[in-house]
Design a protein around this nucleic acid. Structure first.
Lengths: 104, 104
DNA sequence: ACAATATGCAGGTAAATGCCTGCATGTCAA
DNA sequence: TTGACATGCAGGCATTTACCTGCATATTGT
C-alpha cells in the first residue's frame, strides 16, 4: 500500500462520494456514477483514475462499458497503520494535553 | 468533525510524519519538531497549522514556547465513518469483483 | 536593559489539482 | 454497415499547495 496515494485519493469530497456510491451499488459503470455527480464525465474519469491508482477501486471492462468495484483492502491497511496505532493510546494521548492544561 | 479537513491534513507525508513524531513524544515544541524535518521552520509551522485546523493537533502556549499534542478524536471518527463501514462488508465487496472476473 | 531564543506574519514562486471543452476510439444493435 | 452509445485522450485555465526568504513580535535569563 502507498499511504500517500490512498490519503490523497480520500482527500477529495467527490472521490469519497464515489466510494459511497459504489458502496450502495458495487460494479457501476462510469456513466451510472456520473448521473450522481454534478460535473462533466471527463472530470469524474480523472477522479476514478486516482481511486484506481490508489487501488481503492478496481475495474473490469465489459464490452464498451467499464465496471467499477470497491477494493476495501487499502482502507484496511490505513486502519492498521494510521488509526489503530493512535487508537491504542487514545486515552493516554488525550491525558497528555489535559495534564498540561491543568498546569502539569 | 470535518472529514475534508482531516483527510486533507493526512494527505501529506510531512504532516503524517509530524503525527508520528508527536506519538513518539507528545507535547513537543515547534523547534523540537523542526529538528526532525528537513525544511524551514516556517514550512513546518504551516503544516502544524493545517493539523490544528483539522483538530488533529492541539496546542498550549507556555511562555515563548508552543507545545503540540495529538488529538486522536478525529482519527477515531474517520475510522467510524470511513473504515468500519467498508470493513463490515469487506469480504462481500471483494466477492463482487471476483464474481465479475469469473464472468458472472 | 539586552542579547539570545521561540514563534508569528507577509509576501513570492513553482508545481500540483480540479475543472472544463473538443475530438478520437471502440462497441453494440438494428 | 452505420448511427448511437460508452469511454479515452489532449490541452487549457484558475485555484490551491508546499515550499521559500525576510522581517516582526514576544519571552527568557543574565
Amino acid at each position: 500500500m502507498n499511504a500517500d496515494d490512498v490519503f490523497k485519493a480520500l482527500a477529495d469530497p467527490t472521490r469519497r462520494r464515489l466510494l459511497d456510491l459504489l458502496y450502495e451499488k458495487n460494479g457501476q459503470t462510469l456513466g451510472q456514477l456520473c448521473e450522481n455527480l454534478e460535473m462533466a464525465r471527463q472530470s469524474a474519469t480523472q477522479h476514478l483514475g486516482i481511486l484506481e491508482a490508489a487501488n481503492l477501486v478496481s475495474t473490469v471492462r465489459r464490452g464498451r462499458e467499464k465496471l467499477h468495484f470497491i477494493n476495501p483492502v487499502p482502507l484496511h491497511e490505513v486502519y492498521e497503520r494510521w488509526v489503530r496505532k493512535f487508537e491504542r493510546q487514545r486515552l493516554s494521548l488525550l491525558h497528555d494535553l489535559k495534564k498540561e492544561l491543568e498546569g502539569e
